[in-house]
């Protein structure tokens, strides 16, 4: 579509992400914040694969983020003390849940689909909170930490070196985002965009809407689970309060604010959101209100989000 523009966007984004640990402190940031931005950006981009590029709104992605986080943490704490195994179990858990829930709700459309995702999101939060013996209930999952990765000839000091962990998350981010970008550039991605643009036309071109939306949903939940696992590893802790259903709303806000029709929009949205949260929450307990105001302003003045193009086109 916008080949050259896309290309420049890619170069700029990667230049920033690769170098940010070395200059973020000069503008008031710190490594942990950068790392959170990368992680939430991945979750928001995963959500946006479904929202922005398939045209399907989920308000329950916190559940998959949470499953990734709990899956990773509980595996490392109780089963196998390995970062990679933990992450793999986290992603697998989120993916399987995405497959099952997706299959149950895929026939619903529009707001009914979104409502069903909220219901499942709440269900997972309820379980996490009540199933004390495993999930630690409201206390979360602590007393574990991410493990170094042993490559035989050398060891990657993921735990003791936060900078190494940052680049580890960036590598996973690159793989996941690269996979999404590749898909969106090919026929399958175009089928998804066809569904977004005009479901009726897509169906009468022979595209199986339910199957395509289901696959898109599963991809989205899998990557969201990966992001959740990465956050648990960053904190060496799972805090159920971070995974409440309002995280689902936050991910939607990030995607919409940054620009859900643009590939990198949710990354920008996540950066703005996390940065505002950082700055505002030290001054006021009502930081969410202020972020809400920013969100409303962005939506009013850039109907397609900050990185959105074509401010005028109306589509129903």
């Amino acid at each position: 579509m916008n080949g050259l523009k896309q290309h420049y966007a890619k170069i700029i984004v990667w230049a920033i992400l690769l170098t940010i640990p070395y200059w973020f402190t000069y503008i008031g940031g710190y490594l942990g914040l950068a790392n959170e931005i990368v992680i939430y950006a991945l979750a928001a981009m995963a959500l946006n694969f479904l929202l922005g590029f398939t045209g399907v709104l989920s308000f329950g992605h916190a559940a998959f983020f949470g499953l990734g986080a709990y899956g990773t943490a509980l595996t490392i704490k109780f089963l196998v003390p390995s970062t990679l195994v933990g992450l793999a179990v986290g992603v697998l858990t989120a993916t399987v849940a995405g497959m099952v829930i997706g299959a149950l709700i895929i026939k619903r459309r529009g707001v009914y689909f979104a409502m069903a995702t909220i219901a499942f999101g709440q269900l997972f939060f309820f379980i996490a909170n009540r199933w004390n013996s495993v999930t630690g209930g409201d206390d979360g999952v602590g007393n574990w930490h991410r493990m170094p990765i042993n490559l035989g000839f050398t060891t990657i000091p993921l735990f003791h070196n936060s900078l190494v962990y940052y680049y580890f998350t960036l590598l996973l981010f690159a793989l996941a985002v690269g996979a999404m970008g590749l898909l969106l550039d090919g026929p399958f991605g175009r089928s998804l965009m066809a569904i977004r643009e005009n479901e009726r036309r897509a169906r009468f071109l022979g595209i199986n809407i339910e199957l395509h939306v289901w696959i898109s949903f599963v991809i989205s939940t899998a990557i969201c689970g990966l992001a959740g696992g990465m956050l648990a590893l960053l904190d060496n802790f799972v805090n159920p309060r971070d995974l409440r259903f309002d995280l689902s709303g936050v991910l939607v806000v990030m995607a919409v604010m940054g620009g859900m029709r643009s590939f990198w929009g949710p990354l920008l949205g996540a950066a703005i959101f996390q940065w505002l949260r950082e700055v505002l929450s030290s001054h006021t307990p009502n930081w969410q209100t202020y972020i809400g105001i920013v969100f409303v302003l962005v939506v009013l003045f850039f109907r397609r989000g900050i990185l959105g193009f074509k401010l005028s086109t109306v589509k129903s």
Binding site: L183, F188, S191, A194, L205, G206, H212
Partner: peptide, 9 residues
């Protein structure tokens, strides 16, 4: 879609 490529990555 007609060529059967609609699921291909």
């Amino acid at each position: 879609s007609a060529a059967g490529f609609r699921m291909k990555p």
